[in-house]
Design a protein around this nucleic acid. Structure first.
Length: 206
DNA sequence: ACACGGATATTCT
DNA sequence: GAATATCCGTGTA
């Protein structure tokens, strides 16, 4: 197995865009669940004022960011659990936050995990983790694809258009307005998308 | 002990 | 739509 993989094959912002459409799956105790990635954010490491590793900040909880490309980084905020994948070489603490998925596998299981209607199932980073049924950090330091969490880089739906914007919840430093959030234009599972932006016919896929 | 955050739910005009 | 209320793990003290 090579030490190089998708997660160090390009700059982190480029990787975040390329992840849109990929199939994310989790072999949960209740069965296989997952869906298509429709929204991501890139965090560019020590120089990025919004990143957990800004200025080299390194603690027990953000340590997975310093792991090799593809390391799972689950962290909690406001009592929720969020999913990141570390990018670039070890000790280069960049990463990508998975912000929303369009559910395609095990939807019944996910609606049981998170009893909300429609897009409310997975249209946010904490929501999608609750839907998958992940509420702990035990998968930290695993390499994505080597455990129960997987992102299939070869199984990718093609977005008609990729849209970018500033990152959500980021309000400090000069990186606040950098367009490092990416989403599938017109997809209903994108967080905060307006109803009249949704393309009900194709959900924004080719 | 305590303040706060890469969020979400609820409660209003 | 916008303004709270609440979530609880984490970092610093």
């Amino acid at each position: 197995m090579s030490i190089h993989n998708f997660y160090d094959s390009d700059t982190t912002d480029q990787l975040a865009q390329q992840m849109l459409g990929m199939l994310l799956t989790y072999e949960s105790p209740n069965g296989l669940v997952g869906g298509r990635i429709v929204e991501t954010e890139a965090y560019m490491g020590e120089q990025d004022s919004a990143a957990h590793a800004f200025q080299g900040k390194r603690t027990a909880s953000n340590e997975p960011l310093y792991g090799p490309a593809g390391t799972v980084y689950i962290y909690s905020i406001h009592g929720k659990y969020l999913l990141d994948v570390a990018t670039q070489s070890p000790d280069e603490p960049q990463g990508i936050l998975i912000r929303a998925i369009e559910p395609t596998i095990g939807q019944e299981i996910m609606y049981r995990n998170r009893p909300r209607s429609g897009v409310e199932l997975t249209n946010g980073p904490g929501k999608l983790m609750a839907a998958l049924g992940i509420a702990e950090k035990t998968m930290n330091f695993e390499i994505i694809g080597e455990g129960k969490l997987n992102i299939d880089v070869h199984d990718r739906w093609q977005p008609r258009r990729v849209q970018e914007s500033g990152r959500i919840g980021v309000s400090i430093g000069e990186w606040t307005d950098r367009p490092l959030r990416y989403y599938v234009s017109h997809n209903p599972y994108v967080s905060g998308i307006k109803r009249n932006e949704v393309n009900i016919a194709n959900f924004g896929w080719i």
